[in-house]
Protein backbone atom coordinates (compact mmCIF):
# COMPACT_ATOMS: atom_id res chain seq x y z
CA UNK A 1 0.00 0.00 0.00
CA UNK A 2 1.40 3.40 -0.97
CA UNK A 3 1.71 6.30 1.49
CA UNK A 4 -1.15 8.13 -0.23
CA UNK A 5 -3.40 5.09 0.19
CA UNK A 6 -2.40 4.79 3.85
CA UNK A 7 -3.25 8.45 4.47
CA UNK A 8 -6.56 8.02 2.64
CA UNK A 9 -7.40 4.90 4.70
CA UNK A 10 -6.50 6.63 7.97
CA UNK A 11 -8.58 9.69 7.10
CA UNK A 12 -11.50 7.47 6.07
CA UNK A 13 -11.30 5.52 9.33
CA UNK A 14 -11.15 8.74 11.37
CA UNK A 15 -14.17 10.07 9.48
CA UNK A 16 -16.09 6.83 10.10
CA UNK A 17 -15.21 6.98 13.80
CA UNK A 18 -16.32 10.60 14.15
CA UNK A 19 -19.56 9.79 12.31
CA UNK A 20 -20.25 6.92 14.70
CA UNK A 21 -19.58 9.23 17.67
CA UNK A 22 -21.91 11.88 16.23
CA UNK A 23 -24.66 9.38 15.36
CA UNK A 24 -24.52 7.92 18.86
CA UNK A 25 -25.36 11.40 20.18
CA UNK A 26 -27.82 12.65 17.54
CA UNK A 27 -29.83 9.43 17.40
CA UNK A 28 -30.03 9.23 21.19
CA UNK A 29 -33.38 11.02 21.42
CA UNK A 30 -34.90 9.55 18.26
CA UNK A 31 -37.49 6.78 18.54
CA UNK A 32 -37.52 3.81 18.96
CA UNK A 33 -35.81 3.38 22.35
CA UNK A 34 -34.43 0.00 23.24
CA UNK A 35 -34.80 -0.02 27.04
CA UNK A 36 -34.41 -3.80 27.41
CA UNK A 37 -31.09 -3.69 25.59
CA UNK A 38 -30.03 -0.73 27.71
CA UNK A 39 -30.83 -2.54 30.97
CA UNK A 40 -29.01 -5.66 29.75
CA UNK A 41 -25.94 -3.60 28.81
CA UNK A 42 -26.01 -1.67 32.10
CA UNK A 43 -26.10 -4.94 34.00
CA UNK A 44 -23.17 -6.26 31.97
CA UNK A 45 -21.11 -3.05 32.14
CA UNK A 46 -22.01 -2.13 35.72
CA UNK A 47 -23.19 -4.76 38.16
CA UNK A 48 -21.10 -7.54 36.65
CA UNK A 49 -17.94 -5.40 36.79
CA UNK A 50 -18.16 -4.39 40.46
CA UNK A 51 -16.17 -7.34 41.78
CA UNK A 52 -13.23 -7.05 39.37
CA UNK A 53 -13.07 -3.25 39.75
CA UNK A 54 -13.14 -3.60 43.55
CA UNK A 55 -10.45 -6.25 43.54
CA UNK A 56 -8.08 -4.23 41.34
CA UNK A 57 -8.73 -0.98 43.22
CA UNK A 58 -8.20 -2.68 46.59
CA UNK A 59 -4.69 -3.80 45.59
CA UNK A 60 -3.89 -0.48 43.95
CA UNK A 61 -4.96 1.38 47.10
CA UNK A 62 -2.91 -0.93 49.31
CA UNK A 63 0.18 -0.66 47.08
CA UNK A 64 -0.13 3.13 46.93
CA UNK A 65 -0.48 3.42 50.69
CA UNK A 66 2.42 1.03 51.22
CA UNK A 67 4.73 3.04 48.96
CA UNK A 68 3.68 6.35 50.50
CA UNK A 69 3.98 5.08 54.09
CA UNK A 70 7.47 3.74 53.42
CA UNK A 71 8.66 6.94 51.71
CA UNK A 72 6.93 9.42 54.02
CA UNK A 73 8.00 7.67 57.23
CA UNK A 74 11.64 8.12 56.20
CA UNK A 75 10.90 11.86 56.02
CA UNK A 76 8.85 11.84 59.22
CA UNK A 77 5.71 12.76 57.32
CA UNK A 78 3.81 9.48 57.67
CA UNK A 79 0.64 11.27 58.81
CA UNK A 80 0.21 12.73 55.31
CA UNK A 81 -0.43 9.29 53.84
CA UNK A 82 -4.22 9.75 54.03
CA UNK A 83 -4.11 13.16 52.43
CA UNK A 84 -1.96 12.03 49.51
CA UNK A 85 -3.92 8.79 49.03
CA UNK A 86 -7.12 10.85 49.03
CA UNK A 87 -5.94 13.37 46.45
CA UNK A 88 -4.31 10.74 44.21
CA UNK A 89 -7.25 8.36 44.28
CA UNK A 90 -10.08 10.86 43.91
CA UNK A 91 -8.47 13.02 41.23
CA UNK A 92 -6.41 10.54 39.25
CA UNK A 93 -5.90 6.91 40.19
CA UNK A 94 -9.53 5.95 40.84
CA UNK A 95 -10.92 7.17 37.48
CA UNK A 96 -7.91 5.94 35.53
CA UNK A 97 -7.59 2.46 37.06
CA UNK A 98 -11.36 1.89 36.83
CA UNK A 99 -11.33 2.98 33.20
CA UNK A 100 -8.47 0.61 32.39
CA UNK A 101 -10.28 -2.31 34.04
CA UNK A 102 -13.44 -1.26 32.18
CA UNK A 103 -11.58 -1.35 28.85
CA UNK A 104 -10.37 -4.89 29.49
CA UNK A 105 -13.67 -6.22 30.70
CA UNK A 106 -16.44 -4.21 29.03
CA UNK A 107 -14.78 -2.54 26.01
CA UNK A 108 -13.19 -5.77 24.78
CA UNK A 109 -16.50 -7.57 25.34
CA UNK A 110 -18.40 -4.96 23.33
CA UNK A 111 -15.98 -5.24 20.39
CA UNK A 112 -16.03 -9.03 20.44
CA UNK A 113 -19.83 -9.16 20.68
CA UNK A 114 -20.49 -6.67 17.89
CA UNK A 115 -17.72 -8.18 15.78
CA UNK A 116 -19.24 -11.62 16.07
CA UNK A 117 -22.66 -10.14 15.17
CA UNK A 118 -21.06 -8.65 12.04
CA UNK A 119 -19.39 -11.93 11.07
CA UNK A 120 -22.59 -13.89 11.73
CA UNK A 121 -24.62 -11.45 9.57
CA UNK A 122 -26.79 -10.49 12.56
CA UNK A 123 -26.15 -6.79 11.96
CA UNK A 124 -26.99 -7.25 8.25
CA UNK A 125 -30.22 -9.00 9.29
CA UNK A 126 -31.15 -6.00 11.45
CA UNK A 127 -30.46 -3.65 8.53
CA UNK A 128 -32.49 -5.77 6.12
CA UNK A 129 -35.54 -5.43 8.37
CA UNK A 130 -35.05 -1.70 8.80
CA UNK A 131 -33.66 -1.73 12.34
CA UNK A 132 -30.87 0.79 12.76
CA UNK A 133 -27.86 -1.03 14.28
CA UNK A 134 -26.60 2.26 15.73
CA UNK A 135 -29.82 2.62 17.73
CA UNK A 136 -30.23 -1.04 18.59
CA UNK A 137 -26.62 -2.07 19.19
CA UNK A 138 -24.36 0.97 19.64
CA UNK A 139 -26.45 3.47 21.63
CA UNK A 140 -27.44 1.10 24.49
CA UNK A 141 -23.75 0.24 24.93
CA UNK A 142 -22.67 3.88 24.85
CA UNK A 143 -25.32 4.95 27.40
CA UNK A 144 -24.52 1.96 29.62
CA UNK A 145 -20.82 2.86 29.58
CA UNK A 146 -21.41 6.57 30.21
CA UNK A 147 -23.72 5.80 33.15
CA UNK A 148 -21.96 2.83 34.69
CA UNK A 149 -18.30 3.88 34.51
CA UNK A 150 -18.85 6.84 36.88
CA UNK A 151 -20.73 4.52 39.28
CA UNK A 152 -17.89 2.01 39.12
CA UNK A 153 -15.39 4.82 39.65
CA UNK A 154 -17.14 5.85 42.90
CA UNK A 155 -17.00 2.24 44.10
CA UNK A 156 -13.38 1.95 42.92
CA UNK A 157 -12.40 5.17 44.75
CA UNK A 158 -13.99 3.92 47.97
CA UNK A 159 -12.33 0.51 47.80
CA UNK A 160 -8.98 2.13 46.93
CA UNK A 161 -9.22 4.39 49.97
CA UNK A 162 -10.21 1.41 52.16
CA UNK A 163 -7.17 -0.47 50.84
CA UNK A 164 -5.03 2.54 51.74
CA UNK A 165 -6.66 2.65 55.19
CA UNK A 166 -5.88 -1.02 55.82
CA UNK A 167 -2.17 -0.50 55.12
CA UNK A 168 -1.88 2.91 56.81
CA UNK A 169 -3.65 1.89 60.01
CA UNK A 170 -3.12 -1.84 60.41
CA UNK A 171 0.34 -2.20 58.85
CA UNK A 172 1.94 1.23 59.19
CA UNK A 173 0.32 1.90 62.61
CA UNK A 174 -1.10 5.31 61.78
CA UNK A 175 -4.15 6.86 63.38
CA UNK A 176 -7.36 5.72 61.70
CA UNK A 177 -9.32 8.84 62.62
CA UNK A 178 -6.54 11.07 61.29
CA UNK A 179 -6.48 9.06 58.05
CA UNK A 180 -10.23 9.55 57.56
CA UNK A 181 -10.20 13.21 58.56
CA UNK A 182 -7.37 13.77 56.02
CA UNK A 183 -9.42 12.07 53.34
CA UNK A 184 -12.59 14.01 54.20
CA UNK A 185 -10.67 17.28 54.09
CA UNK A 186 -9.69 16.44 50.52
CA UNK A 187 -13.29 15.99 49.43
CA UNK A 188 -13.40 19.55 48.11
CA UNK A 189 -15.46 20.60 45.08
CA UNK A 190 -12.33 20.92 42.98
CA UNK A 191 -11.07 17.42 43.80
CA UNK A 192 -14.43 15.70 43.51
CA UNK A 193 -15.37 17.53 40.30
CA UNK A 194 -11.97 16.83 38.79
CA UNK A 195 -12.34 13.11 39.51
CA UNK A 196 -16.00 12.75 38.63
CA UNK A 197 -16.05 14.45 35.21
CA UNK A 198 -13.42 12.09 33.79
CA UNK A 199 -15.37 8.79 33.96
CA UNK A 200 -18.23 10.23 31.86
CA UNK A 201 -15.80 11.18 29.09
CA UNK A 202 -13.79 7.95 29.43
CA UNK A 203 -16.98 5.86 29.29
CA UNK A 204 -18.13 7.59 26.11
CA UNK A 205 -14.74 7.23 24.41
CA UNK A 206 -14.22 3.61 25.44
CA UNK A 207 -17.59 2.45 24.18
CA UNK A 208 -17.41 4.48 20.94
CA UNK A 209 -13.97 3.03 20.19
CA UNK A 210 -15.08 -0.51 21.11
CA UNK A 211 -18.26 -0.33 19.05
CA UNK A 212 -16.39 1.21 16.12
CA UNK A 213 -13.84 -1.60 15.98
CA UNK A 214 -16.62 -4.14 16.46
CA UNK A 215 -18.52 -2.77 13.47
CA UNK A 216 -15.36 -2.71 11.34
CA UNK A 217 -14.63 -6.40 12.01
CA UNK A 218 -14.00 -8.52 8.94
CA UNK A 219 -12.23 -11.75 8.11
CA UNK A 220 -13.37 -14.42 10.57
CA UNK A 221 -11.76 -15.36 13.89
CA UNK A 222 -8.47 -13.69 13.00
CA UNK A 223 -10.31 -10.48 12.12
CA UNK A 224 -12.16 -10.60 15.43
CA UNK A 225 -8.87 -11.00 17.30
CA UNK A 226 -7.39 -8.02 15.43
CA UNK A 227 -10.47 -5.85 16.10
CA UNK A 228 -10.52 -6.66 19.80
CA UNK A 229 -6.79 -6.02 20.19
CA UNK A 230 -7.04 -2.73 18.29
CA UNK A 231 -10.02 -1.63 20.38
CA UNK A 232 -8.26 -2.37 23.68
CA UNK A 233 -4.94 -0.80 22.67
CA UNK A 234 -6.58 2.30 21.15
CA UNK A 235 -8.86 2.73 24.16
CA UNK A 236 -5.93 2.51 26.61
CA UNK A 237 -3.87 5.06 24.67
CA UNK A 238 -6.82 7.42 24.16
CA UNK A 239 -7.95 7.21 27.79
CA UNK A 240 -4.44 7.89 29.15
CA UNK A 241 -3.89 10.76 26.71
CA UNK A 242 -7.34 12.18 27.46
CA UNK A 243 -6.62 11.87 31.18
CA UNK A 244 -3.58 14.08 30.74
CA UNK A 245 -5.49 16.62 28.64
CA UNK A 246 -8.42 16.72 31.06
CA UNK A 247 -6.11 17.05 34.05
CA UNK A 248 -4.38 20.00 32.43
CA UNK A 249 -7.70 21.67 31.55
CA UNK A 250 -9.29 20.98 34.94
CA UNK A 251 -6.28 22.19 36.91
CA UNK A 252 -6.43 25.43 34.94
CA UNK A 253 -10.22 25.76 35.09
CA UNK A 254 -10.49 24.95 38.79
CA UNK A 255 -7.80 27.46 39.73
CA UNK A 256 -4.99 25.13 40.84
CA UNK A 257 -1.61 26.79 40.51
CA UNK A 258 1.35 24.81 39.18
Amino acid sequence: MSITDKIKTTLYELQSFYLLCLHSIFKLFKKPFYFDDLIEQMEYAGASSVLIVSLVCLFVGMALSLQLSAELSSLGLKMYTGKIVGIAVIREIGPLVTALVFIGRVGAGQTAEIGSMILGHQIDTLRVYGIDPIKKVVIPRVIASVVMLPCLTIIGDLVCIFGGYYIAVLVSNQSGSFYWSSIIRELTFQNVFSGSIKPFIFGYLISCISCYYGIRTKGGAKGLRISTTKAVVTSIVVVIAMDFILTRILLYALGFSL
Binding site: G120, H121, Q122, D124, T125, R127, V128, Y129, G130
Partner: peptide
Protein backbone atom coordinates in the same frame (compact mmCIF):
# COMPACT_ATOMS: atom_id res chain seq x y z
CA UNK B 1 -35.52 -4.35 1.57
CA UNK B 2 -39.03 -5.21 2.77
CA UNK B 3 -39.69 -6.74 -0.64
CA UNK B 4 -37.22 -9.51 0.26
CA UNK B 5 -36.73 -12.05 3.02
CA UNK B 6 -33.21 -13.29 3.45
CA UNK B 7 -31.81 -16.38 5.08
CA UNK B 8 -28.09 -15.85 5.55
CA UNK B 9 -25.59 -18.66 5.58
CA UNK B 10 -25.75 -20.41 8.98
CA UNK B 11 -28.98 -18.60 9.82
CA UNK B 12 -27.70 -15.41 11.50
Amino acid sequence: RRKFSIVFQEGA
